[in-house]
């Protein structure tokens, strides 16, 4: 079981946003997608989320064609955290997170347990009664993360679950960046397949199992962290000079700009 993309291409007018991307997202692993602005990272995520439908190529989730799923059934195994969310209505944090249980019919009591567990996981339990529009950007992002965690909290009879995160750390302070990725990693270890768009190469180096590099809509590299994160490759991708050294703790590479 996996999330398989074959030969995905996307045109927007005359512009090619993605060309012939193949990808397999496996349960149990955290895949980081890296690339400069405009490389097609968000487009790829939006295609996988079912938002863009005018792409060519085929997608399968757990061996079933993406389009053949009933929307609600698919929502039970595929959760998406968008980059920004513009909720302006005064929902409480609890109510926002509860929306993650919408595709499920697990009963109010179980839903509530899951919501509180998710709130605790993303470190926003203390905000349960706060109104969402009054939160800071980082708090909002953590609440939204709790919401998507709720959506795939329990393993479904539909098969393995998938979690797509679009820059989940963009508004977070240093400790919450690590907290969030540790959480994503934790989800992966529980058998969920996680894909996350990241800008921080070192976060990717520390937490990801696999890395996909996109450049101008093409997948230029895919593989294990140590294989992919080499100085020449990062330099050519981002156009800045870097060196890759061993992390002081030795477990993964560390990228430093020169």
């Amino acid at each position: 079981m996996s999330f398989q993309l074959q030969n995905i291409s996307l045109m927007m007018g005359a512009k090619t946003l993605l060309s012939n991307v193949d990808l397999t997202l496996n349960p149990g692993e955290l895949l980081a997608v890296l690339g400069p602005n405009g490389a097609g990272k968000s487009s790829l995520l939006k295609i996988m989320a079912g938002e863009y439908r005018h792409h060519s190529g085929a997608m399968d989730i757990n061996k079933q064609r993406f389009e053949n799923y009933d929307a609600k059934e698919r929502a039970k195994i595929l959760a998406v955290l968008p980059q920004t969310s513009s909720l302006a209505f005064p929902f409480s944090v609890f109510e926002v997170v509860m929306l993650g249980r919408l595709p499920h019919s697990s009963g109010a009591r179980r839903d509530r347990e899951i919501v509180f567990a998710a709130l605790a996981q993303t470190d926003v339990s203390h905000l349960a009664n706060a109104l969402y529009p009054t939160l800071s950007g980082g708090e909002k992002q953590r609440v939204q993360l709790a919401r998507v965690l709720c959506q795939i909290w329990e393993s479904s009879k539909e098969g393995k679950s998938y979690l797509l995160l679009d820059e989940p750390t963009s508004a977070l302070d240093l400790s919450h960046q690590h907290h969030t990725l540790a959480l994503a990693k934790d989800m992966a270890e529980k058998g969920v397949a996680v894909l996350s768009i990241l800008h921080d190469v070192n976060l990717a180096a520390q937490y990801a199992d696999k890395i996909l590099m996109l450049e101008e809509g093409r997948a230029i590299a895919y593989g294990n962290v140590e294989e992919i994160l080499t100085a020449p490759r990062i330099s050519s991708l981002y156009g800045i000079e870097v060196a890759v050294i061993d992390h002081p703790k030795g477990s993964h590479p560390l990228v430093v700009t020169l």
């Binding site: 989320a49 609600k72 513009s86 929306l99 919408l102 595709p103």
Partner: peptide, 20 residues
């Protein structure tokens, strides 16, 4: 009602939650 609640999050978000 529940679909409208999901729509308040945004149309994409509602779609991700399985709302047609």
């Amino acid at each position: 009602a529940k679909n409208l609640n999901a729509l308040l999050l945004g149309e994409s978000e509602a779609r991700h939650l399985g709302v047609n």
